[in-house]
Amino acid sequence: MSETLLTAAFLYAQITLGFAGCLAALRVLRGPRAQDRVLGLDTLYVIAMLLFLVTGMRTGSLFFFEAAIVIGALGFVTTVSMAKFLLRGEVIE
């Protein structure tokens, strides 16, 4: 009973998150402006992190958590530096 419930929930979450990742990637590709692309990229990072966590729960391995933490840290550093560049790079100086 609980096994089928959990399997179904994890499957639903993986499909949903996969679809969400596609939508975020669509925003990255479509733009129209640079800040939209950065926002989409940041969302994509968060979705990928969640997907790793759900996969970790589905396989029962704590290993995926470490990958998720690396994605989280890297995602922050990349997107915040891009956002900072948008703030400083073109218009202001």
């Binding site: 994890f10 639903y12 949903t16 969400a20 939508l23 975020a24 969302t43």
Partner: peptide
């Protein structure tokens, strides 16, 4: 898990 992933999907739909 279902709530979390649904919220994430709704967020990207809005995006």
């Amino acid at each position: 898990v279902v709530t979390g992933s649904s919220l994430a999907l709704l967020g990207t739909i809005g995006l």
